[in-house]
C-alpha cells in the first residue's frame, strides 16, 4: 500500500462506510445486496510519472458465495520489486482474493491490474505476466514431473528449446532431478507443491502469486525455495505469498497485508504493520479471537 501518496502507509479500513461502488472507470455495478463495497480508494490507480506502476493493484474486489461474503471489497497495492506477504486466519478470504486477482475466479465487483494490465479485461495479456501457484487444486498427476513442467511451458506458448533448457534447471532447484521421471501422482505432498511451483516459474514471470507455497515442504527445500524467491525479488521480480505462518512472513517478506473476514485490516511494510511488536502479536491484536487458556481446565495431566 505504499505507492499511494494520498493514503497513510498503514490503513485501517472501516467497513461501516458503504459509500460509492469502487468505480474504477469500468462498468461500475452498484453494491450487491449484502455486499457493502467499501469505497476506501475510489479513484482509479492513476499512475503519474512520480508513482511507479504497482505489480498488482486491486480495487474494491468482492465475492460472495450464496449467503457468505467471502471477500468484502479488498484494496491492495503491491509495489513492484516487493516480497509481499498475505496473512490471515483460516477462511479469511486469502485464497478467494488471490484466485480473483489471478484470473481463476471471476469477481462480483472490483478490478485488478497486473503491471497496469487489467486482469479481467485482457486476461491473456495479464496471465503472461503472472506465475501462479493456486492452493487446493489438482495437478495433471499422470504426467511425470518433467512432463508436467514441460507442459506448463508449452501451454504458455514458449518454444520447445527454451522449455527444454529451463526444465532441468527448475527440477534441480526444486531438488527433484532424481524424481523427474516419476509420475506426479506418486509424489509426496511436499514434492507436489514443489513441482507445482516449478510450473509457475517456467515462463519467468514478472509477478509470482503463491498461495501457501511452503505447506508440507521440508525445511531444506523451503530454505532453497526462499533463496530462489529472494534472488528473484532482488532481480526485480515481485512475489506475493499467502501464509498463516507469521514468523515466516516476518522473516521473509518486506511488505505484508493482514486479511480477516474478507477485509484488509492492515497493509504496508512489515515494520509499519507490526509497529514494534512481533507480527504474530500484531496479527492476533488485529484479528482477535484469542481465547484464554482457562477454557480447558480439565486438560491438565496432573
Amino acid at each position: 500500500m505504499t505507492s499511494h501518496p494520498s493514503q497513510p502507509p498503514v490503513q485501517q479500513p472501516d467497513n461501516q462506510n458503504p459509500g460509492q461502488p469502487p468505480a474504477v472507470g469500468a462498468p461500475a455495478p452498484g453494491p450487491a445486496d449484502g455486499v457493502p463495497a467499501p469505497a476506501q480508494q475510489p479513484a482509479a490507480p492513476a499512475y503519474g510519472a512520480q508513482a511507479p506502476v504497482p505489480a498488482l493493484a486491486v480495487r474494491g474486489l468482492a465475492k460472495r458465495f450464496g449467503e457468505k461474503i467471502a471477500v468484502n471489497g479488498v484494496n491492495l497495492d503491491v509495489p513492484a520489486g516487493s516480497f509481499y506477504g498475505l496473512v490471515g486466519p483460516n477462511g479469511a478470504g486469502k485464497t478467494t482474493s488471490l484466485s480473483m486477482a489471478t484470473g481463476l475466479l471471476r469477481p462480483d465487483y472490483g478490478q485488478v491490474w497486473v503491471h497496469g494490465v487489467d486482469v479481467w479485461a485482457e486476461p491473456l495479456k495479464a496471465k503472461r505476466l503472472m506465475g501462479v501457484l493456486p492452493d487446493g487444486v489438482r495437478l495433471f498427476d499422470r504426467l511425470t514431473g518433467e512432463q508436467l513442467v514441460t507442459y506448463a511451458g508449452l501451454l504458455r506458448g514458449m518454444d520447445r528449446e527454451t522449455v527444454a533448457a529451463r526444465v532441468p534447471d527448475l527440477l534441480r532447484a526444486m531438488d527433484l532431478t532424481n524424481d523427474a521421471g516419476t509420475l506426479v501422482v506418486d509424489y509426496s505432498a511436499g514434492m507436489t507443491k514443489k513441482i507445482a511451483l516449478a510450473t509457475a516459474l517456467i515462463h519467468a514471470p514478472k509477478l509470482l502469486v503463491l498461495d501457501e507455497p511452503f505447506e508440507a515442504v521440508d525445511p531444506v527445500s523451503a530454505a532453497n525455495i526462499r533463496d530462489i524467491l529472494h534472488d528473484y525479488v532482488a532481480s526485480g521480480g515481485t512475489v506475493i505469498v499467502s501464509s498463516h505462518v507469521m514468523d515466516l512472513v516476518q522473516r521473509m517478506c518486506d511488505h505484508v497485508a493482514v486479511i480477516a473476514g474478507g477485509n484488509v485490516l492492515a497493509a504496508g511494510t512489515v515494520d509499519e504493520v507490526r509497529d514494534g511488536a512481533s507480527l504474530e502479536e500484531r496479527f492476533v491484536q488485529l484479528v482477535g479471537g484469542r481465547t484464554q487458556a482457562e477454557g480447558l481446565e480439565w486438560l491438565r495431566t496432573s
Binding site: 511425470t144 518433467e146 507442459y151 532424481n178
Partner: peptide, 22 residues
C-alpha cells in the same frame, strides 16, 4: 514408489511444440 530420473518426454516430444500440440 521407485524413483525415476527424467529424460523421457513421451508424447510431448512427438507432438508439435505449440500449446495445441502440448
Amino acid at each position: 514408489v521407485s524413483r525415476k530420473a527424467g529424460g523421457k518426454l513421451g508424447w510431448f516430444s512427438r507432438m508439435p511444440g505449440t500449446p495445441a500440440g502440448a
